[in-house]
Amino acid sequence: MVPEDLNSPGYDIPPEARGQVAITTLDRIYNWGRSASVWPMMFGLACCAIEMICTAASRFDLARFGMEIMRPSPRQSDLMIVSGTVTKKMIPIIVRLYNQMPEPKYVLAMGACACGGGPFKEGYNVVSGVDKFIPVDVYVPGCPPTPQALLNGLMKIQEKIRGESIKTARWYQKGPDAAEIPIPILGPDLIDPRKMELLKSAVKGPEA
């Protein structure tokens, strides 16, 4: 499915060179290389992790997509599959791992719990979806999503990667790196440093 897209010249290739020359754009070949070898981070939190393991096992092979290298180290991975419930005790670690991933990085929220809190949303130790703290690229709902549903989500990530352009890539822009997210603090309840102002005004009340 990919090679035909890759070779799509807007130029005339003379007939004698037609089997030997391919013309493509820098964007396409850059994105083709990246999308065909996304390395997920082995980051299983809960039940969805078991479905992720089944996706990597022999029946629904991830290696066909180039994704069988599941690195436990964030420095060597491209895609963080947040599979399972995100709890307040775990979120500082998730944010720290996200900060440690080098660009280009993507996040896939697998399962209802990572998308939006899931069935445990009302719990006192549960964060309502991982997109409260880190930017999510693809959401895969389900509880748990079957391996075929997860593969569908991974194909959507590949589709997204193929649609990107080098000119607008976040990691090639000049200026300060905006992707560093401040790590939440575990106080009497979870404290998000980006919401400090809101916290001060809400707690101090209208008289402050």
Binding site: K88, G117, K121, E122, G123, Y124, V126, V127, S128, K132, G187, P188, D189, L190, I191, D192, K195, M196, L198, L199, K200, A202, V203, K204
Partner: peptide
Amino acid sequence: FADNVAYPAGFDP
């Protein structure tokens, strides 16, 4: 706070 958090009364960050 747009999230599942609640702080005790008198909490001063």
